[in-house]
C-alpha cells in the first residue's frame, strides 16, 4: 500500500521577459509570471503568480485576441544592508494569444495574495442558421 504524500514545491527562478533588445524606460527589471490556464465550457481562466502586485498596479487588456497582463511592483528602498539575495524584484509582463471567442464585456480580473485570476467567458456558440436558397 502506498502512502499518499503531498507534493513538495520546487524552486522556480524568475524568468526575465525577453524584450527583444528593448529596455524599459524606467530601467527596472521585468519578469514573466508563472501561469496556469484552464478551460471549461463557460470559458478560460488564467491564473498568474505576481507577488507584490496590488490592484492599483495591475493592468489586464484584451486586444485583437491578445491578452496582456502587466503588474507594477512598487519597491520601497529602505536604508538596509543586504545580507542575502536569492530573488530579484521587478514588474511582471506576459502576453497570450487566445483562440477562443471571448465575451469581452464579461471579462473579470481579481488579485489576491499576489495571485491574479482572470476569467474570460466564451461567447455563446454561434447558432446554426438555416440559409434559404432562393431559386430564381
Amino acid at each position: 500500500m502506498t502512502e499518499v504524500t503531498s507534493q513538495e514545491i520546487n524552486v522556480h527562478e524568475k524568468t526575465p521577459v525577453d524584450m527583444g533588445g528593448a529596455e524599459t524606460t524606467s530601467g527596472g527589471l521585468r519578469f514573466s509570471p508563472l501561469v496556469d490556464i484552464w478551460e471549461n465550457e463557460q470559458g478560460l481562466t488564467v491564473v498568474a503568480d505576481m507577488p507584490g502586485v496590488t490592484a492599483e498596479g495591475l493592468s489586464v487588456d484584451l486586444k485583437d485576441s491578445v491578452l496582456t497582463i502587466f503588474g507594477k511592483v512598487v519597491q520601497e528602498v529602505p536604508e538596509r544592508r543586504s545580507l542575502r539575495r536569492e530573488y530579484e524584484v521587478g514588474d511582471y509582463y506576459r502576453q497570450f494569444s487566445l483562440s477562443e471567442q471571448i465575451n469581452q464585456e464579461k471579462i473579470t480580473a481579481a488579485i489576491k495574495d499576489g495571485v491574479l485570476t482572470v476569467t474570460l467567458p466564451k461567447l455563446a456558440p454561434a447558432q446554426p442558421r438555416k440559409i434559404t436558397v432562393v431559386s430564381e
Binding site: M50, R81, S82, L83, R85, Y87, V115
Partner: peptide, 27 residues
C-alpha cells in the same frame, strides 16, 4: 547568488536594530 534550491527563495537584509527577511509566496 546564494542559490539553495529550496522553496521559497528569500532575501535577507539588516539595519542596526533588526534583520528583515522577505519571501515571495503567491497564493
Amino acid at each position: 547568488r546564494n542559490y539553495t534550491g529550496v522553496f521559497p527563495l528569500v532575501n535577507l537584509a539588516e539595519d542596526e536594530e533588526k534583520l528583515y527577511l522577505t519571501a515571495e509566496l503567491p497564493g
